[in-house]
Design a protein around this nucleic acid. Structure first.
Length: 454
RNA sequence: GUAGCCAUAGCUCAGUUGGUUAGAGCAUCAGAUUGUGAUUCUGAGGGUCGAGGGUUCGAGCCCCUUUGGUUACCCCA
């Protein structure tokens, strides 16, 4: 018998953590609903085919695949062996695995919309708070099971959606106390304009990947990365592009100058201007080096960053996609969405000490168990309080008072209710405030009003 | 997938060049107290030193394998 353990990168959450996580969840949910989004849940598993090829080459490797059942059945062994041979060559694995844990919420959502678009009322605004799984190597702020909180609008091209999503970021982060968050914003079409000037649209992904590394590796490394596939003139253009600095307005002016009348760039710049004007509350920072993000984004891209004093990557991201359901054979449904990384937000709030101290919910009172008869009466009272919605509990067995006090203290129960032989006799009960150490007697009949009035 | 560091009591950690029976604080339990904790004093229990193999007269310590944690790369929330 080996010691029990958890799979790599998976975690148990005990009460305090769950309460803190619920605080984040409910803050986000409240804001989502405030903006008219409706909940959706999709299963943990999807068909592998639904997920494969949607997250890029790296993404495919990080999908948790589920082994098919019945591989050991004699009639399947040939197929299984054949599948395994293919697997070793890095190929199709359908005969071994047909299902996988979902990798994010967006693609399963697109699958859902593609399946149900005839019944949905557009624009369809849904939010979803569910765990997703990635077979990534765990490290700071990165887990193999983590929760995503997504809100997407599909069936609308209107830029007001982007504005609202930006303001939702603002509202959520402000409510959580993360006042110094930064919402970085860029536009895929501006990146596309850059790619067009560097050899064509097939350069979009390589250039995006390279320039996204700017703050980590520096300009020279980025240029080195691009040199093999670009001319020196094109590298110079990328450099000029990356050197666009200043206020949001200044950046927009400079990029306008750089790309002149390129239609893609113009559209991107107009979109960004619109969002900046309408969502000026949100801490938007235009960042033309922001390029990471999934291949399916086609318009605005967002990345929410934690306050600078915290060493944490992005705590949210999103963007517009023109044709996500097209991947599933239903073209013509555009969408835009955002996502919150709850596990990272949790770590940030913890580090900045931003969780409200009132989160630790416990019962209001612990009734001491001081004997059989006493406990019988106490149980009666406990049930009375519970019927009135007052959370309380009775110590499970007769025990020394010290033990019961310590129990109450550890569970952070504010009141001890003492009902012993004396109280049984006198019809009065002792209530002790455990924080202040003060206690007083009350007639039994006043017990309920006392707790109701708290 | 690649690389570095780490793993000793329930928790946080000591443990000397490899050398008797592996320690401390907190926690737990019991008792000076048969009705008062957080905040007195005394004592006790608790460990296959992550797991498996090897070197050695002898391994918590050295070597190999493996699992987990952690950090960085890739990538990403």
């Amino acid at each position: 018998m080996t010691r029990p353990s958890l799979p790599q990168g998976m975690r148990d959450f005990y009460a305090e953590t769950v309460q803190k996580r619920n605080y984040i969840f409910s803050t986000i949910k409240t804001v989502f609903e405030l903006y008219g989004f409706q909940p959706l849940e999709t299963p943990a598993m999807e068909n592998l085919e639904t997920l494969m090829g949607k997250y890029g080459e790296e993404g495919d490797k990080l999908i948790f695949k589920v082994l098919n059942n019945g591989l050991n059945d004699p009639k399947n062994t040939d197929k299984a062996k054949e599948g395994f041979e293919k697997l070793l060559l890095g190929k199709n694995t359908a005969s071994l695995t047909e299902r996988a844990l979902k990798y994010d919420l967006t693609i399963p959502f697109a699958r859902f919309v593609a399946m149900n678009h005839k019944q949905l009322l557009f624009p369809y605004k849904r939010y979803q708070l569910q765990p997703v799984w990635r077979a990534d190597r765990p490290q700071k702020g990165r887990y193999r099971e983590f929760t995503q909180c997504d809100a997407d609008v599909v069936g609308s091209n209107a830029l007001i959606n982007e504005v609202e999503l930006a303001l939702m970021y603002h509202t959520v982060f402000t409510r959580l106390g993360l006042k110094q968050y930064v919402l970085k914003i860029n536009h895929r079409k501006i990146l596309a304009a850059l790619a067009e000037n560097c050899g064509g649209s097939q350069m979009l992904i390589p250039i995006s990947n390279a320039i996204d590394k700017l703050d980590k590796t520096g300009l020279e490394k980025v240029k080195d990365l691009l040199r093999p596939s670009l001319t020196e003139q094109q590298v110079k253009l990328v450099e000029d592009y990356l050197m666009v600095t200043g206020t949001n307005q200044e950046k927009l002016m400079k990029i306008e100058k750089l790309f002149g009348d390129n239609t893609d760039a113009k559209k991107g710049i107009d979109d960004l201007k619109y969002i900046l004007a309408k969502a000026d509350l949100a801490h938007i920072e235009i960042d033309f080096t922001l390029a990471r993000g999934l291949d399916y984004y086609t318009g605005v891209i967002f990345e929410a960053k934690a306050p600078r004093e915290v060493q944490m990557g992005s705590i949210g991201g999103g963007g517009r996609y023109d044709n996500l359901t097209g991947l599933f054979g239903v073209p013509g449904i555009p969408g835009v969405g955002i996502s919150f990384g709850v596990d990272r937000i949790y770590d940030v709030l913890e580090e900045l000490n931003l969780f409200p101290s009132t989160l630790q919910q416990s019962v209001k009172a612990l009734f001491f168990n001081l004997g059989e008869k006493e406990a019988e009466k106490a149980f009666e009272l406990v049930q009375q309080l519970r019927n009135e919605g007052i959370a309380c509990e009775l110590f499970h067995e007769p025990a020394k008072m010290e033990k019961q006090f310590k129990f109450a203290e550890k569970k952070q129960i504010p009141f001890a209710v003492i009902l012993g032989s004396r109280e049984l006799e006198s019809g009065k009960i002792v209530i002790k405030n455990l924080q202040q150490g003060e206690q007083h007697q009350l007639p039994l009949a006043e017990l309920l009003p006392f707790f109701i009035s708290l």
